[in-house]
Simulated assay, not measured.
Amino acid sequence: MNENTIETIIRPVGADDETRWRALFAAYNAFYRASVPETAVATTWKRILDPQSDVKAVVAERDGEITGFANYLFHASTWSDRPNCYLEDLFVDPAARGGGAGRKLIEGVEAAARARNAFRFYWHTQEYNAPARSLYDTITPRSSFIVYRKAL
């Protein structure tokens, strides 16, 4: 099969995906120079698999290999009676970039947000993440909001 004819599929994460999801999540955190405690990683994984949780994940799969993931969650809004959908983490293996997986992951989360009748779908990235921003700019204009955050 020609490499160009292999399609990337987006699907909900499953219990069998834990090892690869963890490897990609670790690479994602390394990119952002972040250190996420194992307890938080384990809790996130547990939440993703819990059908009652508002934390969800999809993966990009190409030729049987998971090449990326998107973790997202739904939360209440003070501006609507419908939930917001926040895409918190998005990562594609550097070896698999350029094939459209990032866009497809965003579209997969957007489809989930529409299915839940979300009021808003949003995400953010670092200013220095030019490759991601060049993709995001083709999907929607960036907002004028500046994020302030304080670790507690």
Rank of each mutant, 00 (worst) to 15 (best):
A111Y: 06
T43A: 15
S53K: 10
R47V: 00
G99R: 08
A111W: 02
V59P: 02
A57C: 13
R82F: 09
E107M: 08
S35N: 13
G98Y: 06
W45I: 09
A60C: 00
L49Q: 14
F69A: 04
A34T: 03
T67R: 05
H75G: 09
A95I: 07
D54E: 11
E110N: 00
P51S: 07
G68A: 05
A42I: 05
G98R: 00
W45Y: 12
A113W: 01
T44N: 05
A113D: 09
G68Q: 03
A112C: 11
E65K: 14
F31T: 09
F74K: 02
D81F: 06
R114S: 05
H75D: 07
D54F: 00
A112N: 06
R82L: 12
A95K: 15
P37G: 05
T39D: 15
G99A: 11
V36Q: 07
E107V: 01
L73V: 04
D93G: 03
L87R: 08
E38Q: 15
R114A: 13
S35H: 14
A101D: 02
F91M: 07
G64Y: 09
G100R: 10
G100T: 07
D63Q: 15
F31E: 02
I66Y: 02
D81V: 11
G98T: 04
D89A: 13
S77D: 06
G100E: 05
A112E: 14
W79N: 01
D93C: 10
R47T: 09
K46Q: 14
A60E: 00
R62K: 14
T44M: 15
A60L: 03
N84W: 07
L105W: 08
P37K: 13
N71H: 14
D93I: 07
R97S: 11
A57W: 06
K104N: 00
G98A: 12
A60Q: 01
I48H: 07
G68P: 08
A113F: 05
L87C: 10
R62A: 09
A96T: 09
Y86K: 00
G100F: 03
D81N: 10
A112Y: 00
I48R: 03
D93A: 14
L90P: 12
F74I: 06
N84L: 13
D50C: 06
V41H: 08
S35P: 06
S80Y: 10
E38T: 10
N71A: 06
E38F: 01
A70T: 01
V92C: 07
A57Q: 03
E88V: 00
L73Q: 14
P94D: 14
T78G: 03
Y72N: 12
F69C: 08
F69S: 03
V92L: 11
F69T: 03
W79V: 01
A57F: 03
D50R: 12
E38I: 08
K56Q: 12
A76T: 14
A113C: 12
I66Q: 02
D63N: 15
A96G: 04
H75W: 08
K46R: 14
A57K: 04
G98D: 11
